[in-house]
């Protein structure tokens, strides 16, 4: 009997995982398919990958994606870390208020964020393109950085900063030599999270850029309307792998952090 229950439990889990990962599995397998047909396996080939790297539009979109992700991650990490330090040193009530303000954008649907940013740019007559997409990404990254830095600040001995001042450190020196080293794990996690979210984003990017500046997700979306090229399978497979690795690292770091706490 217990064997049977264990079998049921295991197959249930397997079924769920199958549903989750089968589509991606199919996609990855298809990316190695020599033929163009999606219904028939015509032998193993890497030529879609080769084509991918020769495709100008895709390579440009890759540059945009990485450019936005890197800059957005750096800027939002600096802003978010400083904001977290500020929020942490606030009194209880303003702190609770700021945390609510921080959490609201996180719970807001991307489509709302995207459309409202688009309306803002139209209203202020800012031409949409790389810069507007970058600004949008920074906007949605900052709360995540704040949320990964704050717990580290809370763990810190509340007198550490004062101890540094007491030993003769001016506030800026204390920030760089005492506070930052102690919250660094949270800062790095925040930066990686921001980078991943930025790579991952489609909806907000779609509303805040122009057709002339595409990142990978908007490019795939517009290409898909014309019919899926197998190169896109290869591209999607690569993106999946890259994000998977990043997420694994972030998860490992968060697990380590909470273990230490």
């Amino acid at each position: 009997m217990s064997k049977f229950i264990r079998f049921i439990k295991k197959s249930y889990l397997a079924l769920i995982l199958l549903f989750l990962y089968l589509p991606i599995g199919v996609l990855i397998v298809q990316s190695f398919n020599a033929g163009k047909s999606r219904a028939k396996w015509e032998g193993f080939s890497l030529h879609w990958y080769a084509d991918l790297f020769k495709d100008r539009a895709i390579m440009e979109a890759l540059q945009v994606t990485l450019g936005v992700a890197v800059i957005a991650a750096i800027v939002s990490t600096v802003l978010g870390t400083l904001a977290a330090i500020g929020i942490h040193s606030m009194k209880k009530r303003p702190q609770a208020f700021m945390m609510t303000l921080t959490n609201i954008p996180n719970t807001m649907p991307d489509i709302v964020t995207g459309i409202s940013l688009m309306l803002l740019f139209i209203f202020t007559k800012v031409e949409r393109g790389f810069v507007t997409m970058l600004l949008a990404h920074i906007t949605f990254d900052v709360p995540y950085v704040i949320l990964s830095v704050l717990p580290k600040l809370k763990q810190m001995n509340k007198h550490s900063y004062e101890a540094a001042l007491d030993l003769g450190a001016p506030p800026v020196y204390a920030l760089f030599h005492v506070i930052l080293p102690e919250i660094m794990p949270g800062v790095i996690t925040g930066a990686m999270l921001a980078f991943t979210l930025s790579l991952d984003d489609f909806v907000i990017s779609y509303f805040t850029t122009s057709p002339l500046v595409q990142n990978l997700s908007t490019l795939i979306y517009s290409a898909a309307r014309r019919g899926i090229e197998p190169t896109l399978n290869a591209l999607s497979a690569l993106m999946f792998i890259a994000l998977l690795i990043l997420l694994l690292i972030v998860n490992r770091r968060t697990a380590d952090n909470s273990k230490k706490a």
Binding site: N157, H159, S160, E162, A163, A164, L165, D166, L167, G168, A169, P170, V178, P181, E182
Partner: peptide, 19 residues
Amino acid sequence: PPYKRRVNTVFQKYALFPH
């Protein structure tokens, strides 16, 4: 400010720098 005073403090929970 504290960093300009000729006094030093031993804090309640020591506040050593863990890094």
